[in-house]
Design a protein around this nucleic acid. Structure first.
Length: 530
DNA sequence: GAAGGGTTGGAGAA
DNA sequence: TTCTCCAACCCTTC
């Protein structure tokens, strides 16, 4: 054991050959290389109790995307004279067993800032150091090292994009070296190794192509997509994030590189370099924060804040999160989750999420605002959970960061700016083609009623073969009054947070919740009495 | 303490 | 398509 002549490359994210410093270091000066991926059954195997097909932690689309990424990685490794060794079990136990059994002197894996990996890596590193195994764990999932930025800022993460950019400076460059071959895989002893499983082998039944994500996983697919983007210089040069069209689904208005960045099928540093190359060759181009390059900076911003903020993924105990007395209403939550709000724009987006595991960022904004501060006043953590499960690109730092943003709990505070579940979508897609595609029950509804079908006369509903209240639900809330009510609640909650100077107790929240439940008219009277 | 700025609101006017 | 107003938030900087 230990002090052998092999290297173990532990893949988790970073599922790529290009710009992979951990892989490159693992392959250097070693006789044997063990490229390992551990399948955690909890993450991958079916859970019948979950609200959608998938495991306890991930929806089927993301599991499938991961399997495709692994198969692509395996195929690339094979071309280089190696292969992916797939093992099953609790990752730290499996890893430590491999380290014990194989002759390994170097353990290499990409550094990861997520709490899950921090805890996991702590256990594995601990064992490696007692066994005298060298550990190499470089930062290559982000452009910058979040630890450095937090240190530069005096130990706390910067809380605005602008202050982050000032601290960040220039990102590190991708590796220029391309691997042409890899060392042989060593003897695996008694460890049970398998090929990358298929979705069926994991215990899932095949679902129709119609019902699943059109985006295929893997480094090859990612590089192909990046290449197409690079070739469309005009598109790259004029990209402005807030101006994208959320209803475009035949040709999405963004790069759809997010799932590939999430799993590290593509290197963000390589992507950054490609964008700079395009910018160099055009007369003028957009700039951060709205440009494509800006999107990579936003990604690093969220990674940095998430890493430096204890309890980033919850309201309680999170010092940058406003304490707000959200409703605990399961009926409203499931109506939203299952695309039954009665607002076609909202429901179509939720269907796209369920089927594709991806939707445009403004569509995400629209439904996140609707669930939380805009209409339903349901806790952002509940919406976060749904996104985390169903998105193929769900990324711990970015998903939580955006829910904090959209719910006006952190980063963004203009709670009066509410997305309308009717006019926002109509602005981009007056005919409702997006709705007709994802909610075919409404496909024959005339365009003047497609965003508000409950206002259509019964004769029109009959003709469209869609009776509201029978074939498609009535709205769960009335947007005009619900959004007004939400504004009132947000104002009250903000006032409480201000008065308490960031020290809002559980009891304060309970009291405010009780107060907000009172009749608004009574509330007005109360104010006058006071 | 005031002023300026904030990737992505809506509605109505020009 | 671009503007102002709505009502007024926060953080950063000075």
């Amino acid at each position: 054991m230990a002090s052998g002549s092999g290297s173990l490359m532990w893949f988790r994210k970073g599922l790529r050959i290009h710009d992979n410093p951990a892989l490159q270091y693992a392959a250097e000066g070693t006789k044997f290389l063990y490229p390992v991926f551990v399948i955690d059954p909890h993450y991958m195997e079916p859970d019948k109790n979950a609200f959608s097909l998938g495991s306890a932690r991930a929806g089927l689309n993301r599991i499938n995307f991961l399997l495709e990424s692994l198969a692509d990685l395996d195929s690339s490794l094979k071309k280089l004279g190696s292969r992916l060794l797939v093992l099953k079990g609790e990752p730290s136990e499996v890893l430590i067993r491999c380290l014990k059994e194989w002759e390994v002197e170097k353990l290499c894996f990409e550094y990861d800032t997520e709490p899950y990996y921090q805890a996991l890596d702590f256990k594995v590193k601990n064992y490696a150091s007692t066994a005298g195994i060298e550990v190499f764990s470089p930062v290559s999932h982000t452009l910058f090292n979040p630890t450095d930025i937090i240190q530069k800022n005096g130990g706390r993460p910067p809380l605005s994009y602008q202050s982050f950019v000032k601290l960040a400076g220039q990102p590190s460059s991708p590796l220029s070296h391309t691997l042409s071959s890899l060392p042989l895989v060593g003897d695996v002893g008694s460890c049970v190794i398998s090929e990358v499983p298929t979705i069926k082998e994991l215990g899932y039944v095949d679902i129709g192509q119609d019902e699943c994500s059109p985006f295929r996983g893997g480094e090859s697919e990612a590089l192909k997509r990046l290449n197409e983007i690079k070739n469309d210089k005009e598109w790259v040069a004029t990209f402005e994030k807030p101006k994208g069209n959320p209803s475009a689904f035949l040709r999405p208005a963004t790069t759809v590189l997010s799932p590939y960045l999430k799993f590290g099928c593509i290197s963000c540093r390589f992507f950054y370099q490609c964008l700079q190359d395009v910018y160099k060759n055009v007369k003028r181009h957009t700039s951060p924060p709205v440009s494509l390059l800006g999107q990579l900076l936003w990604r690093d911003f969220f990674y940095t804040v998430a890493f430096g903020t204890p309890n980033f993924d919850q309201m309680r105990g999170n010092r940058i999160c406003k304490q707000i007395p959200w409703n605990d209403d399961d009926e409203l939550l499931t109506a939203w989750r299952d695309a039954r709000t009665g607002y076609p724009w909202i429901d179509a987006i939720m269907v796209q999420l369920r089927k594709w595991g991806w939707m445009h960022h403004l569509a995400r904004h629209s439904v996140a605002c609707f669930l939380t501060r805009g209409d339903l006043f349901v806790h952002w953590e509940k919406g976060r959970d749904v996104f985390e499960r169903l998105l193929i690109d769900s990324d711990w730092a970015i998903n939580n960061g955006n829910w904090l943003w959209l719910s006006c709990s952190s980063f963004f505070y203009q709670y009066n700016r509410i997305y309308s579940p009717i006019s926002f979508g109509k602005k981009y897609d007056p005919n409702g083609d997006y709705i007709r595609h994802f909610l075919p029950i409404l496909k024959d509804m005339p365009r003047e009623y497609i965003y508000e079908p409950w206002t259509a006369p019964l004769s029109i509903q009959t003709k469209a073969k869609c009776i509201i209240g029978r074939d498609y639900p009535k709205p769960v809330v009335l947007h005009d009054s619900a959004s007004k009510e939400c504004r009132r609640k947000m104002a009250e909650a903000y006032a409480l947070n201000k008065d308490s100077n960031g020290m809002v107790s559980e009891e304060d929240i309970r009291n405010l919740r009780r107060k907000l439940k009172e009749d608004p008219e009574q509330e007005a009277k109360n104010k006058r009495i006071r």
